[in-house]
Design a protein around this nucleic acid. Structure first.
Lengths: 262, 262
DNA sequence: TATAAGTATTCGAATGAGTCGAACGAATGT
DNA sequence: ACATTCGTTCGACTCATTCGAATACTTATA
């Protein structure tokens, strides 16, 4: 094995484009605050004002930043790109409709996730009561081990990768019920594999239960996960353990067929 | 006046961060294709493979790019950032609900736009029939002069800026009815200003009419524009010229009050 | 009106970082 | 076993980014 100069011991981050990093530093900082001035940015990020200025100029010229009422903001170019990125996920349109259908049928919240960088990301969500699509949350991330759909997705990974992921996974508890032990997670995955559905009992949010299933492509590859969430007093017993799972398995099956033939 | 080395004659783009530009070249190219290989990217963009490689490494490490089934793709980080950027627009949540309400009431398509970089950008959209929120389109852009909401927004700009914008505007026709003359646009704007609503008759899409109004903040600043669109055979006569305008003006008024008190 | 505090912008110099191209390695299919 | 495509590494050159200080602009405050 040849030595890799500059390798960090965890084996990541070699030879990166620094300028790109500083650029996203700025963007991400803008994303957190809302509306920051050049001086503030330079101060908090420890870059020279002139440096930040040049970056902001560039970002604004490219449409990624706007200078609205006395402060710099993240531009909607990110939304534009993000939306087309989402739309390219296989079966996204079909799944979105199904999510709304499920929400309406159950009266609970239904959602669709895909895996990215070891987390699951919300791609669609609908609430039953009024079929209002709640956008806040779209794009945000949850660790795989803290979501029913996450477990379902995880279970579909072929064996070598699965072990790998479990090993390199760091378990940061979200609630007092979040799984923190890889063996427990592994056990749950193995237990659910022939059933095909997975639970989440207050592991990501107190007082909230969920059931999730995976959606797979024709070659057995994972596309994403579908789940129904609701208050634990409403999602329990028969409803949680058989009624909703059946519904989800049916939906997944139908989706998988439709996606395969599209 | 001191000379500005590097100034282009149109007075734009000085002293930009080149690396950031190449980086977004890559991202935007990925956004168009779906799933490109390193070699392809390098070829089409005329960068050395090693250069593109380094950028992709960086982008992937930062979560802005993913390497899925044998090709590089835009990551969902863009969606995440874009969604929070959108949510920070004043009154966005209120407007989104209103858009759905209007869509349901009219049975037509309702939408909300804001202005950015001389275009209007879709922030929300709803279709009447089934109240299904159609996401494709969100984030995409239309020139101000080719949309009813665009005209409404334009009309709210104070005088010096308005003339400026009209002058530096380049009119690329979208359909055969698109406005191509600044004087015509100016006339329409002046005509509509006391009414408060504006029309679009097949100017952005053949066979499609629309009415639009502006939403303003307490200080008279423009927040965005609201419009209803539909087939020209359904949107005409009384309905187009009085019924829908009244509805929209009422909605705008209500929104403006709610936004001011929030 | 003058002053101050905030903002954004420009400049030149230094060096640090991005770029290239070629050569290597890995993976896949024929 | 070969060819093809894809990704990775390396070192050298040079261009571009970074910095800090000085300038300019705008808005509040005395």
């Amino acid at each position: 094995m040849i030595d890799h100069p500059g390798d960090t011991e965890d084996g990541a981050r070699v030879d990166t484009v620094r300028t790109a990093e500083t650029m996203f530093d700025i963007v991400e900082h803008l994303d957190n605050e809302n509306g920051a001035s050049l001086a503030t940015l330079a101060g908090e990020l420890n870059y020279a004002k002139s440096t930040v200025h040049r970056h902001l100029q560039t970002l604004e010229a490219l449409g990624y930043v706007v200078h609205r009422d006395g402060g710099y903001h993240v531009g909607l170019r990110f939304l534009e790109i993000g939306v087309t990125a989402r739309s390219k996920y296989r079966g996204y349109d079909l799944v979105r409709q199904k999510v709304e259908e499920i929400a309406e049928m159950t009266g609970e919240r239904a959602q669709f996730f895909v895996e990215e960088h070891g987390k699951i990301v919300y791609l669609a969500r609908a609430i039953g009561d009024q079929a209002v699509q709640t956008d806040p949350g779209i794009g945000s991330r949850i660790p795989l081990y803290a979501a029913s759909a996450g477990k379902a997705i995880l279970a579909e990974f072929p064996e070598p990768e699965l072990s790998d992921m479990l090993e390199r996974m760091s378990f940061d508890p979200v609630t007092e019920h979040t799984i923190t032990d890889p063996d427990v997670l592994r056990a749950e995955i193995d237990e659910g594999r022939d059933r095909g559905y997975y639970f989440n009992r207050e592991e990501s949010l107190r007082g909230t239960h969920a059931v999730g299933v995976a959606i797979c492509g024709p070659d057995g590859d994972v596309i994403g996960g579908l789940s129904v969430t609701g208050p634990s007093h409403r999602l329990n017993g028969e409803r949680l353990e058989s009624e909703l799972p059946d519904l989800l398995l049916g939906a997944a099956n139908e989706l998988e067929l439709n996606i395969a033939h599209s």
